[in-house]
Design a protein around this nucleic acid. Structure first.
Lengths: 188, 188
DNA sequence: TTATTGTATCAACATTTGTTGATGTAAATT
DNA sequence: AATTTACATCAACAAATGTTGATACAATAA
């Protein structure tokens, strides 16, 4: 692993642990056991570091999501697939998933607006699936916006449990449980 | 309203908007249209400001939750009541609810540990309700930990929609929809 | 061989930021 | 009347922080 990649990974760890704002260039230098100025061999600026982490994982996520959206799956199956993608990313790349949820607020304009727009666009797509499902009767009659947020928040919490912890998880089982929760709730 | 209360409210707004770390004493001064040093007539320190906001709303929340837990309601009804409390606090005090979700990370030791312990204790209590429900058959057979987090995240997202926005919401209707989602999911 | 690339060192900077001390004034409380 | 309380002003400091410039050395690519 090149030193640059090493730095990238280390920065992910540190930012996840301390939060982006609280992570200083000097912290990063110490973690790499190098001089402060040396950090700038790997990054252009502190902001740039956050941006690269964030937009990298974000674009991968959206690529996958868009493939699901434009597929011919039924609304319910699209939602299942969506949960699946979320779980996969959260479990295989927990630190970046955590960044995506926690640190986007630290972006500055114009990147901040760009990020928010992408997320809103994503939420609209999900809402559209929900509305389709309600219309064809496979989903309950409900407020689409509220359903959208409820579903998304249900999958977003995941990183809390798996980011930074050495828990060995059965991805398929986690997927199944979340899908059951979202689709059928908790009542027997 | 005394100037101290004015400041308290203004600081809530600003911290919600910019995040605690990004909110400077000078920002607070500007918002109050007063001198920088003057801010210290209202607070002991920046950290103290966060702590007071956080632990105030937190203790109120936990007080209400504990009353529910130790009541004689059935597990399902306890969960309904829990959602009810969450919705109430989120809608009546959205800014503080948002702090509770977003800014506790900025606490410093020993307050940080204190906060985390309180939250973990709360989550254990919820999990206990779930287990009771599973045991007496009113809840589906499921992973209690996962169910706990799914439920809690479903209610925590709320502030996203209502904090800072001037949306007039029907509290009862929101409650109903969330309870339906948590209990029955979205499938028809 | 020469040029480039990746990495390292040291010193220094301009800002930002939390905080304090000394002091003053007007209103409320005693 | 005397004293406490709430609020205001100004200047200043010490620490933290992002960033840069100049320089150097070794390995790799041309």
């Amino acid at each position: 692993m090149t030193k640059r990649e090493e730095f990238k990974q280390a920065s992910l760890n540190l930012i996840h642990k301390k939060g982006f704002k609280a992570t200083t260039i000097r912290d990063l230098a110490e973690m790499m056991d190098c001089d402060v100025a040396n950090v700038y061999n790997y990054i252009d600026s502190k902001q740039g570091l956050l941006e690269s982490h964030l937009f990298e994982i974000n674009s991968e996520f959206h690529t996958q999501v868009d493939q699901i959206i434009s597929s011919s799956y039924s609304p319910i199956d699209k939602i299942k697939k969506l949960v699946s993608v979320y779980v996969e990313i959260t479990i295989t790349r927990p630190l970046e998933a955590s960044l995506l949820v926690n640190e986007w607020r630290s972006l500055k304009e114009p990147k901040l607006t760009e990020f928010i727009k992408a997320r809103e666009s994503f939420e609209r797509k999900v809402k559209k699936i929900i509305i389709e499902g309600i219309n064809d009767g496979t989903l309950r009659q409900m407020d689409p916006a509220l359903a959208t947020y409820s579903i998304l928040s249900s999958v977003r919490w995941l990183f809390n449990k798996y980011a930074g912890k050495k828990v060995k998880v059965n991805r398929i089982e986690v997927e199944k449980q979340i899908i059951e929760f979202v689709l059928q709730g908790i009542e027997s």
